[in-house]
Design a protein around this nucleic acid. Structure first.
Lengths: 140, 140
DNA sequence: AATGATCCTTGATTGACTCAAGTAAACAGG
DNA sequence: CCTGTTTACTTGAGTCAATCAAGGATCATT
């Protein structure tokens, strides 16, 4: 998403700040991906391949259609960032894994996406704990 | 974006909760839009038309290309949710405004998008202030 | 008037996303 | 074993968001 999620008129300040946070986070994520010529979706999938896994597992985790994953992985494969190996245990299934190039790009993405790190870093350890607790509570 | 923004391996718990928040927020926004058969982008634009404004102003605010706004507004217009009136002061420009139907849909969207409201509502007023202060500090 | 900037649209392209179908292999039950 | 069903994934068609390049119209300046 490039366009921001909100605001419908926010009633409280906390809501407004929440919206700001989401907006800035999303934009930073997108920008970091763009630095590596990846789409956000590609960066997302690449980041979830610390261990090799099947297409279905990815789709479940991402909460999207399997055919969507097929496409994104196909593009990552074309870029040489992942491989789709046959699964010896189940010949219907494919195991997706990052290539060394994929590892490198993923590492660089993690470096480029500084937003969360920076934001949290502006807080003292105590404040970080408070924030964690508050957000956990807010998330229900 | 339907796919989540993250996680690249999060180093701190605060970062992980931040990611969760963004993910849940984005999904809730998308779901609320979907309830009204709107795309997130359409809901976003509709929500920013409390006052009529020009296409360029929208594009600036949304941080995207003017031609992107043209498309989204065209679809909203086709749905009867906005109008594109000529600007009497400047005949190059168009003034986009919500129709009464647009107002109604926007109101319903605001009702359907409960996430931020609910999340903040789980906190006491004091906690809401703390959260606001912490997020402001984290945003820098 | 002529020039140049501004506002917006059009057209072309890419990618994400979804749904409906389809293939192939695993996995029953008889 | 077959046979029918489920599972894992791919393909194809279609929509929408997004960006870029190019163009038309209007404004603004000189």
């Amino acid at each position: 998403m490039a366009l921001p999620s909100g605001p419908v008129t926010t009633s409280s300040e906390a809501e407004a700040v929440l919206f700001d946070l989401v907006d800035v986070y999303d934009r930073a994520y997108e920008a970091a991906a763009a630095e590596l010529s990846l789409s956000p979706a590609q960066a997302c999938v690449l980041g979830r391949l610390d261990e090799r896994r099947g297409m279905g597992a990815l789709a479940d985790e991402l909460g999207c259609d399997a055919s969507n994953v097929t496409q994104i992985v196909a593009r990552l494969e074309a870029l040489g960032l992942v491989t789709r190996e046959p699964n010896p245990q189940d010949r219907r299934a494919r195991l997706v894994a990052r290539t060394p190039e994929g590892d490198e790009i993923n590492r660089r993405f993690a470096t480029a996406f500084t937003f969360a790190r920076t934001a949290v870093g502006r807080l003292s350890p105590d404040e970080q704990d408070q924030l964690t607790a508050l957000l956990r509570k807010a998330l229900g």
